[in-house]
Design a protein around this nucleic acid. Structure first.
Lengths: 135, 135
DNA sequence: GCTGGCGTTGACGCCGGGGGGAAGGTTTAC
DNA sequence: GTAAACCTTCCCCCCGGCGTCAACGCCAGC
């Protein structure tokens, strides 16, 4: 299988495949004419890469999964190195979520304070009427 | 007050101040010699900018606050435009947090599945011994 | 034998935000 | 007198993950 076919079957582009090879992530054998030659195993590796990318992993983080598959394991995450990547990712996500929630709380506090200040100002400028007298 | 003093008093750099001026965020009057001239009001504006930046706002998002102060309001968030920025920021943060939590759940699921697979494999390779026989 | 569609390498662009740093020239301060 | 502070303009960078040429090679069909 050549690069165009592999790209199409994996839903990506030839440019991306050359890039992955440049990173050493998905090296390709070469046919006699210099064309890259891929097989079904490469398609499997590539699909693993794409899956992880869609899940928010960077390319370097997919490397242990790819090497795990290439080593003959049934799944990309059958190796300890892959599990470590999962754990690091979870920690990273937790950290990021916590920081965002902290920021959110800070902004929410400011927002509420500002809204109260605005309402207080409106109330003092136009003094309150007796509610029972409202029509 | 000249640029160096303002930068120092606000805990930033002259480079940043020139950049803010370039954005039209913090324009400066000029002294006869061409030097930028700032006053205490500018320091107030600048502190508002820095505060918001520390809270995760982009420079453009600080603009309504700065203009609000410059219009004579007591606080940067005394204007509706500033409140809208707060609301947009909150929505943005909520969206971002939700997406990260979704990603986290997905990764956590994969991780747990992989760990179970590993443990199952270990258990099947070395068949279970009777727990009561353990020392 | 020629066109079109694949393939190859290499190099540059970009996206965005927030400046950094250097060059080359005044002005001020001690 | 000279060092520090200021001025402008300019390019650079960071980060990943490619997109987009450019210029060329290989091969199948007609």
């Amino acid at each position: 299988m050549r690069i165009g076919e592999l790209a199409e079957r994996a839903g990506t582009t030839t440019r991306a495949l050359r890039y992955y090879e440049q990173l050493g992530l998905l090296p390709a054998r070469r046919a006699g004419n210099g064309y890259r030659a891929y097989d079904e195993g490469d398609l499997r590796l590539l699909r693993e890469i794409r899956m992880l990318q869609d899940a928010g992993f960077g390319l370097e983080e997919t490397r242990p999964f790819v090497e795990c598959l290439r080593a003959g394991h049934p799944e990309g995450d059958s190796c300890p190195a892959s599990l470590e990547v999962y754990e690091r990712k979870l920690a990273e996500l937790d950290d990021c979520i916590a920081r965002l929630q902290e920021a959110r709380a800070q902004v929410a506090g400011q927002f509420e304070r500002a809204v109260r200040a605005r309402d207080d100002l409106a109330a003092s400028e136009r003094p309150p009427r007796c509610e029972l007298a409202e029509e």
